[in-house]
Structures are given as structure tokens and as C-alpha cells.
């Protein structure tokens, strides 16, 4: 266990798959924008020097022996946060899309104690890049659906830029979290489990280098899978309220 500090114990969780090229710039930016945060990079079965680069930049590195996918990597970070007794964790992409200025905006929202999870929205904030139209339409439909159900306006259900407090970290650390892409369905799970979620405007940019995870046929698969996932969450409403939490 780390020593007790008077300041809240804060962590940035950064899932990374073959991001060795982006990490130096991204981590340097974080050190400036969010000093005082510990950083854990979850190397999701990379074949490049992601782990070595992250370690050389002073990050704690958890290397997964196989590629689990985004959700599996992020959940590993949640588990790391729970075991090291962090008060708050911010999940952030390693590809440079998430402007590090958002870290404090998201954390502040959670600090105020009014929400358990703060989600960075590129549509309330700024989006400096383009998306495939299938995905764009899909996202707006899902945003509408989630907004209707939770009676809170959700503009960016796919955003992976999030700050979570202890209770939310514990809720997701061992269960209740999808292994592929946390999305609109995850927001619904939070809603039914009684967590308070709100959106904070942030800036998202074009990735610095490498290939995006959303390309080719993936958007179509994504939209279909999302409808199934949302439907299943609606069927399981009661289950989420009493879902497993770690103490």
C-alpha cells in the first residue's frame, strides 16, 4: 500500500496498444497539464516497444500477456486503481486524441461530489477530426436513446475520456464492464446501478500516428452490436441495481 498523503490520490489510466510512437508526446503533455497524477499504462499485448517507452517515461506499466481489447485493458487499470487505493482515476487514450487539458476538468467535476463519473464530451466541447458517417449516425441514435432513458442529455456515449470516483472504480473493477468497447450500454448500466453521470465538454483531436481502431467494416458491426448490448441492459435493469461491488 502507498503511504497516506493529505492530497487525494489520483491516477491516470492509459490503455495502449502499439502506441510507442505517440507515448513520448502524450505523456509529456500530461506531466504539464496534470502534475500530481500517477500514471499507469496498460500495455494491451503490444508488439512494439510500448511498454519499454512508457517505463522509460516514468509510468507504471502493466503488460497484458495477450491483446484483450480496449475494455479489458481499461478494466485492468480499474483493478490497479482499486488495489493501490486511489481516490479517483481518469481514463485517457494513448493516441493523443484526448487533450490532456480535460483531465482536470473531468476530475474537478468528480471532486465536487455531485457525480460519480464524469464523461468528456467532444460534441459539447471541440472535435478537430472527422468520423465515418455510419458511426456518426449510430452514435447520435445511441446518444438520443441513452438521453431518453436516463433523462439526462448525453451527447457522446462512446467517449472513453472519463473520470471515476472510488465507488465507480470498485463497481467496474471486477464485473459489470464490457471487454470490448464500453459505450452507451455502459452508461445505462451505471444509470441503473444508481451512479450519477454527467458530461463535461473536452477537446478531442486527430490521432498523432498509427491506425484508428474504428475503420473498414467495423462501424457496421459496431452499430449492430450496440443495439444488442443496449437491449440486453434494458432486460437486465433489476440485476444492475443489485450488481456485485467490491468492498
Amino acid at each position: 500500500m502507498p503511504p497516506e498523503t493529505p492530497f487525494p490520490h489520483r491516477l491516470i489510466i492509459m490503455p495502449a496498444h502499439n502506441e510507442a510512437g505517440n507515448l513520448p508526446r502524450v505523456i509529456a503533455e500530461i506531466r504539464v497539464a496534470a502534475p500530481g497524477y500517477d500514471l499507469v499504462v496498460i500495455d494491451d499485448g503490444s508488439t512494439d516497444r510500448t511498454a519499454a517507452v512508457a517505463a522509460s517515461l516514468g509510468a507504471a506499466v502493466v503488460t497484458l500477456p495477450v491483446n484483450l481489447g480496449y475494455g479489458g485493458a481499461v478494466q485492468t487499470g480499474f483493478r490497479y486503481a482499486v488495489r493501490h487505493d486511489y481516490d479517483l482515476a481518469v481514463v485517457m487514450d494513448a493516441d493523443g486524441q484526448h487533450d490532456p487539458a480535460g483531465v482536470n476538468l473531468l476530475a474537478n467535476a468528480v471532486d465536487k461530489g455531485e457525480v460519480d463519473v464524469a464523461v468528456g464530451s467532444r460534441f459539447r466541447g471541440r472535435m478537430d477530426y472527422h468520423q465515418p458517417w455510419v458511426k456518426r449516425i449510430g452514435m447520435s441514435v445511441f446518444a438520443w436513446t441513452v438521453s431518453r432513458i436516463t433523462r439526462r442529455e448525453v451527447t457522446d456515449p462512446t467517449s472513453g475520456y472519463q473520470a471515476l470516483n472510488r465507488a465507480a472504480l470498485r463497481f467496474f473493477a471486477y464485473d459489470n464492464y464490457p471487454s470490448d468497447y464500453p459505450d452507451a450500454d455502459t452508461l445505462l448500466v451505471l444509470h441503473y446501478a444508481g451512479f450519477r453521470v454527467s458530461e463535461i465538454p473536452v477537446t478531442m483531436r486527430e490521432r498523432i500516428s498509427g491506425v484508428s481502431m474504428h475503420s473498414g467494416w467495423k462501424p457496421i458491426y459496431y452499430v449492430l452490436k450496440m443495439w444488442l448490448a443496449i437491449g440486453i441492459v434494458l432486460l437486465r435493469q433489476g440485476t444492475h441495481a443489485s450488481a456485485h461491488r467490491v468492498d
Binding site: 497484458l64 500477456p65 479489458g72 485492468t76 483493478r79 488495489r83
Partner: peptide, 10 residues
């Protein structure tokens, strides 16, 4: 198992 293995190794 992969998550636990990664955390233990770290």
C-alpha cells in the same frame, strides 16, 4: 487471468 497476470508481473 491475463489481467491478474499483468498486475502480478508489474
Amino acid at each position: 487471468l491475463s489481467q491478474e497476470l499483468g498486475l502480478l508481473r508489474q
